[in-house]
């Protein structure tokens, strides 16, 4: 697992729900690339054109609230987003990210982050830095049990490895 994640910030507000992350009209497929083409479409129709591989979503409270559709984190991951940082996450969305291996960090930094800021996450140190503001934030530590799932490469790999 990489210990440093670096990318440009894509900033969103509070309670970004899974219906805007991937609207129901696209839920007849689970193809990651098809989903990515419509990611965040109802919030920002140019999202898929704007984001570059490695970008980091920086959000406020309650990111990913609403439906349990795993299509939402799949769409975000396949868009090239390397991590999502939010003040808080809705729980089903957070589980889904852990289970599919999309990196998520709980950190309250949205209010002083601007779109395009260079963000660096140092997972070893548990720190996030904003290059423009020179601010350094502490990440909420990850429980051991969750670390095991993530280091196995997701929940199902964890299940298979444990079976051996």
């Amino acid at each position: 697992m990489k210990n440093i994640i670096k990318g440009r910030a894509y900033v969103v507000g509070d309670s970004v729900d899974t219906d805007v992350i991937i609207p129901a009209r696209f839920l007849t497929t689970d193809n990651a690339n098809e989903l990515a083409a419509h990611c965040m479409e109802d919030l920002d129709k140019d999202f898929s054109k704007k984001v570059k591989t490695g970008d980091i979503i920086v959000a406020g409270d309650n990111f990913g609230c609403g439906s349990s559709r795993e299509h939402a984190p799949i769409a975000i991951k396949a868009s090239g987003i390397s991590a999502v940082i939010a003040k808080s996450f809705a729980r089903i969305f957070l589980r889904n990210c852990i289970n599919i291996g999309l990196m998520v960090f709980v950190c309250d930094m949205k209010k002083d982050t601007r779109p395009g800021d260079e963000i660096t996450v140092d997972m070893q140190k548990g720190e996030i830095a904003n290059a423009r503001t020179k601010k350094i934030y502490q990440v909420k530590p990850v429980p051991e049990f969750i670390k095991k799932i993530v280091s196995s490469g997701g929940l199902l790999n964890y299940a298979v490895q444990r079976r051996k």
Partner: peptide, 16 residues
Amino acid sequence: VGSTDAAFAMLTGKIW
């Protein structure tokens, strides 16, 4: 939960 959780429960009978 999500789809992966449901797949895990089908494999193991359990959930975290």
